[in-house]
């Protein structure tokens, strides 16, 4: 299951583990990313809490947790090469994985069709 937030995070859910990244729209708006700060493994995140920071040549931007959960894994390849966000935001440029604390929270997020429609309104 793939869902999206209005803040341009994507969340891919497999069982009770979700992988989170930012969308192609977000990486284009940010421009060249030069540094990424990811949350520590084991950290409990509330929904909408600050989870990661993306520094582009333009500015620093926060990435929020789309839903609540505990960080189980972070993308070390992304820390080593932050340009993966620009080149592959939906695949190898993922940010972190969460063990979901309340899968029902996913219901409030958009599916691909809804997100695509939302982008057209921006």
């Amino acid at each position: 299951m793939l869902k999206f937030t209005k803040d341009h995070e994507w969340i891919a859910v497999d069982g009770d583990i979700a992988t989170i990244g930012i969308t192609n729209f977000a990486q284009k708006a940010l421009g060249d990313v030069v540094f990424i700060e990811l949350p520590p493994i084991g950290k409990a995140l509330a929904a909408h809490a600050d989870a990661a920071v993306v520094e582009s040549v333009k500015a620093a931007s926060d990435v929020y947790a789309p839903v609540s959960g505990t960080v189980t894994e972070t993308n070390e390849a992304l820390v080593a090469d932050s340009s993966l966000v620009n080149s592959a935001p939906h695949t190898t440029g993922w940010f972190f994985k969460l063990k979901l604390s309340d899968p029902k929270e996913l219901n409030s997020l958009m599916d691909q069709a809804a997100y695509d429609s939302y982008l057209k309104t921006l």
Partner: peptide, 8 residues
């Protein structure tokens, strides 16, 4: 995430 949004 918070994308820098332009003023009008």
């Amino acid at each position: 995430m918070d994308i820098p949004v332009a003023d009008t």
